[in-house]
């Protein structure tokens, strides 16, 4: 090692230090190589492959054929694509703010010194770890149009029974309701961590100045946990765009994949549409095009959120 170093002039060394080809650089490369190779083979590789597939006709069983922009052209002329795009956005618009709001409310409530605190926190976390299939049975017990108690309740009140998940208007709001219920515990934990990072001195100082609870919340808590809120919003936006399992399970995909997203495609979100086209109908090229559009939308949304955060997120 010594002898090699001596041979190098200082300027040369500085230049080489920046390059990966130095001795240390190579060792570094070697040490991260398992991850790097994994990343190239399982992330970059499929990414490039799917980009290529999106410009080709590919049925999985035969080699892909280059067809240029045809998949994208077809996509932009397909009403079902716009419908699924709207469904996804609608889901996100309802879900993201509702989840963030209620998770914060819950976190604030469970950040107090109350009895059996851990029990309450745990109770709200149980849905997070339950499988969607289990949740589906619980939801069915409530919202089954024939046997569920939601309808018995409505009838008792003298109201019209509803078709719930079989109703084109109700299906997405209902799915959002269940998704919020299931996901809220996770976001609550993130918020709790954020809340516990707010220094107590600030509240004490505010007390001295005579600030009330609401004033303290809006002027201290909210600004100081804004990075957490930002994280929660970014995370839940991404989850909604990738929502698949819930809708697949709750709209009957297990019996018939083409039924998933019903009734009448009213809950067909982009991921379900992609899955149906790619894996049920073997239009892998077309499905890859959907995936890239989905990626573009998510990318733009995240950029917008990053740009927007400057206006409301305060880092300590």
């Amino acid at each position: 090692m010594e002898s090699e170093r001596i041979n190098r002039s200082p300027t040369n060394l500085a230049a080489k230090k920046r390059s990966l080809l130095t001795y240390e650089g190579k060792w570094g490369l070697l040490l991260v190589s398992p991850y790097l190779i994994q990343f190239i083979v399982f992330v970059i590789g499929p990414l490039i492959a799917s980009l290529y597939f999106s410009f080709s006709k590919y049925d999985m069983l035969n080699p892909p054929q280059w067809i240029g922009l045809e998949n994208y052209e077809k996509l932009f002329n397909e009403p079902l694509f716009y419908k699924s795009l709207w469904n996804t956005l609608y889901f996100a618009i309802l879900f993201v703010p509702t989840q963030a709001f209620f998770a914060l409310l819950l976190a604030v409530a469970l950040n107090q010194k109350i009895k059996a605190l851990k029990l309450y926190r745990m109770a709200h976390f149980i849905p997070v770890i339950s499988s969607w299939t289990v949740v589906m049975y619980v939801v069915d017990a409530i919202f089954n149009p024939r046997f569920g108690f939601a309808n018995s309740f409505l009838i008792k009140l003298g109201l019209e029974p509803q078709r719930w998940l079989n109703d084109e208007q109700l299906v997405i709001p209902l799915l959002v309701l269940v998704a919020v219920w299931k996901g809220i515990g996770y976001m609550m934990v993130i918020y709790l961590a954020g809340l516990q990072n707010v220094p107590n001195e600030l509240y004490e100082a505010a007390d001295m100045d005579g600030a009330g609870t609401i004033k303290k919340f809006s002027s201290i808590t909210l600004p100081l946990i804004s990075p957490t809120t930002f994280l929660v919003i970014v995370l839940s936006t991404i989850t909604t765009f990738q929502a698949f399992e819930q809708i697949y399970v709750m709209t009957g995909g297990a019996t018939d994949i083409t039924a998933a997203g019903g009734p009448n495609n009213a809950s067909l979100v982009l991921m379900l549409y992609l899955y149906r086209e790619g894996f049920s109908f073997l239009h892998m090229g077309y499905a890859s095009a959907i995936a890239w559009i989905l990626f573009t939308i998510l990318f733009i949304l995240t950029l917008l959120q990053l740009w927007g955060q400057k206006k409301w997120v305060h880092y300590q």
């Binding site: 090692m1 090699e4 001795y23 190579k26 060792w27 490369l29 070697l30 398992p34 190779i37 083979v41």
Partner: peptide
Amino acid sequence: KKNLSVLFSLVVVLVLFVAGCT
């Protein structure tokens, strides 16, 4: 020599990995 040996190990890792995958 050491540079070469590092490169060599890198190649070995790669080969092992690819062999494991295929």
